[in-house]
């Protein structure tokens, strides 16, 4: 890839020719406030927070300005600060912020911005939105949409369109009434939304958060147990429960993407209906048994049938759900017992 060299606040940095100034800065650990920029999406230029000055040319928004050989960029300055402060303060006053009650607390881009520009005590108090006056949309069982916290960055709209090609939501209404809406402003569950949660993952604030979110204490890398795509996941664990799942961005298969089942549907693992002990049917009713009782009975019955009918009487249905190692042992056992009658649902 072709490289160019430019100056960022007097630091000489090398960037890919296709990069924008914002990308180059973030790649080099230089923070420029931004809200509507997301590395997975095309630049949008909506929030105006990433404004910078290219020396000799004036102000520009860095998420849309391509890097060029030899340019010198300033990320701070009186004019920049003034513009940025106005844009940021307008966002902050319009944002319903009860941070401690917010699922995105400590992981919020608006908090980052507020911390960066610095908010004087009292200055915004008079203008601040203090009530959650717009109705929540909790129609989807997996996530909540809270327009009181929305900063209109459009990341959800663009994710739905650019990442998944669904297009369930868009900007609607005008001026102060602008908000993100489904077609005809219906609850999200009645729209063409596919509940994949990609927008929830990318929302920079608490406007889109999972229902009943609980942060995991640790994460374990695994593979989604549903269809054959084989998406890489990280299971979030608390105690002995799965409380979350997220896509593995390093997986060459899904690159972090997941569908509704892969992201939200692990209730079955910790479900009370899980079998926890061997069962033996006695007089038509299942009775709990020890492993020894159950396995001894299976062994005796297998041997009995083999003597009565020959090894061919035994057959096994293996599973497209268990591991390779288990499938291998399953057919090894049956073949070792003298039968090749092993099949799986691949034939269905």
């Amino acid at each position: 890839m072709d490289k160019v060299v430019l100056k960022l606040d007097d630091l000489e940095v090398m960037a890919n020719k296709e990069d924008t100034i914002l990308q180059a800065a973030l790649d080099h650990g230089i923070y420029i406030p931004h809200l509507c920029y997301h590395p997975d999406l095309k630049p949008f230029g909506g929030c105006r927070l990433c404004v910078v000055e290219i020396e000799g040319r004036g102000l520009t928004i860095s998420c849309k300005a391509p890097v060029e050989e030899g340019i010198a960029v300033r990320t701070e300055g009186p004019e920049i600060d003034k513009m940025r402060r106005v844009a940021a303060e307008l966002l902050i006053v319009n944002h319903y912020s009860e941070c401690l009650q917010c699922a995105r607390n400590t992981d919020c881009k608006l908090q980052d911005i507020a911390a960066y520009i610095g908010i004087e005590e009292g200055r915004l108090q008079r203008l601040k939105r203090t009530a959650r006056d717009l109705p929540l949309d909790d129609s989807n069982p997996f996530f909540i949409r809270d327009p009181n916290k929305c900063v209109l960055c459009g990341i959800c709209v663009r994710t739905c369109e650019e990442i998944n090609g669904v297009g369930a939501i868009d900007f609607a209404f005008r001026g102060l009434d602008t908000r993100i809406s489904t077609l005809k402003d219906k609850p999200i569950v009645e729209s063409r939304c596919e509940s994949c949660g990609e927008c929830v993952v990318r929302c920079p604030v608490g406007a889109l958060v999972p229902q009943n979110m609980r942060k995991p204490e640790r994460e374990v890398k695994s593979i989604c147990p549903y269809c054959g795509t084989g998406c890489g996941i990280y299971l979030g664990i608390r105690g002995d429960k799965i409380v979350s799942a997220r896509g593995d961005r390093d997986s060459v298969v899904n690159k972090g993407q997941l569908c509704v089942k892969g992201r939200f549907s692990y209730d079955f693992v910790n479900h009370p209906d899980r079998l926890t002990t061997p069962l033996i049917k006695r007089n038509g009713v299942f009775v709990e048994a020890t492993w020894d009782e159950a396995l001894d009975l299976v062994t005796a019955k297998f041997k009995e049938a083999q003597e009565k009918y020959g090894p061919e009487a035994l057959a096994g249905l293996s599973s497209a759900r268990v591991t390779n190692e288990e499938n291998y042992l399953f057919q090894k056992l049956l073949r070792s017992l003298g039968t090749n009658s092993i099949d799986c649902c691949a034939r269905l």
Binding site: I223, G228, N324, Y328, S341, I342, C344, C345, A346
Partner: peptide, 20 residues
């Protein structure tokens, strides 16, 4: 396209009556 997480593996592992 395979419909199940390890249907490919079940076949590759010889869980078929004619192959190992």
């Amino acid at each position: 396209l395979r419909g199940q997480n390890n249907v490919q593996g079940a076949c590759d592992m010889g869980c078929l009556p004619n192959v190992l």
